[in-house]
């Protein structure tokens, strides 16, 4: 008779993020640094200590700009995400008006430069100012900030729709069949079975989209929005000193690296049920 094999080691207790790694600490530390850049003024203290007058004078504007950038990206990613769901669903119809419209929408917004789209909305809205005043929307469209927010939301909606459509397509057909066999109606199966699995597949591309949005949001500065890039250009133009661009570069790199690492962390947390336990 064979000896009974050793039972597998019991799974170790693990929290949301799985087992902690040093990378997690780095991610959280980076996130804390980014948050403190917006909320506190320790960089000014360092600038004072180094005797860098330009930095001391213009850092508060840059920090404010960083806040605007974060706001723009966060809001447009969420709004774009909401808009992307009907777009992705419409792409699944084989023919018909909705499908053509969604296809055209995605093709337009993915095929043209974000800067051109921003000009189209911002300057284009000015042409219709009388009409917009008539329906009470002029207050919205006369502000560059809102125009940019609208453009970014529409733009990222197109990209997110593609991500979502691809992820939904990647869910195995058997999941639909199993849901059907259990007596779930199609909409319930979609919302409760298919969509959650699609989101897990889409996590990584979504993370890339967030990073692309952070980088893309720099074009807001061209239409006078004082995001991080806008504040940087203002400071550089006033001081005739290009070092300001390098500070901005450091902040953008920190920001992108933070998002990448924190996103990894979230992804690990959300997929911990899929990992084989060691």
């Amino acid at each position: 008779m064979t000896t009974t094999p050793h039972p597998e080691a019991p799974p170790t207790a693990s929290g949301f993020f799985g087992e902690a790694r040093t990378g997690d600490l780095v991610a959280l530390a980076l996130a804390a640094v980014i948050a403190s850049l917006v909320l506190s003024d320790w960089p000014v203290a360092i600038g004072t200590w180094l005797g860098n007058d330009i930095f001391v004078r213009y850092w508060p504007r840059l920090a404010e700009g960083l806040g605007v950038t974060l706001q723009l990206v966060a809001i447009s990613i969420v709004l774009g995400g909401l808009l992307s769901l009907p777009l992705a669903l419409a792409r699944f119809r084989n023919r018909g008006f909705a499908s053509t419209l969604a296809y055209g929408y995605v093709y337009f917004f993915r095929g043209t430069p974000l800067l051109a789209q921003t000009f189209l909305v911002y300057y284009g809205a000015g042409e219709f100012s009388d009409t917009l005043r008539g329906i009470g929307l002029w207050g919205f469209f006369k502000e560059a900030y809102w125009c940019v927010l609208l453009t970014f939301s529409l733009n990222t909606a197109a990209y997110q729709a593609e991500i979502l459509a691809g992820a939904i397509r990647a869910v195995p057909r058997g999941q639909w069949e199993a849901a059907h066999a259990l007596g779930l109606s199609k909409p319930v199966a979609f919302v409760k079975i298919i969509l959650p699995q699609a989101f897990v597949t889409a996590l990584r591309p979504y993370g890339n989209e967030v990073i692309l949005m952070i980088k893309g949001s720099a074009v807001a500065s061209v239409v006078t929005v004082f995001d991080l890039m806008g504040a940087t250009r203002l400071a550089a133009n006033r001081t005739f000193d290009e070092q300001v661009y390098l500070w901005a570069a450091v902040v953008y790199l920190l920001l992108v690296e933070t998002i990448r690492r924190v996103w990894d962390l979230i992804e690990r947390g959300l997929t911990r049920h899929l990992r084989r336990r060691a």
Binding site: K215, S217, A218, V222, T232, Y245, L246, A249, Y252, E257
Partner: peptide
């Protein structure tokens, strides 16, 4: 890491003015 992380606009301005 650097050139994928920086906004293209910022890279352009750094190259142009720098």
């Amino acid at each position: 890491t650097v050139f994928r992380g920086l906004p293209e606009l910022l890279t352009l301005l750094i190259i142009y003015y720098g």
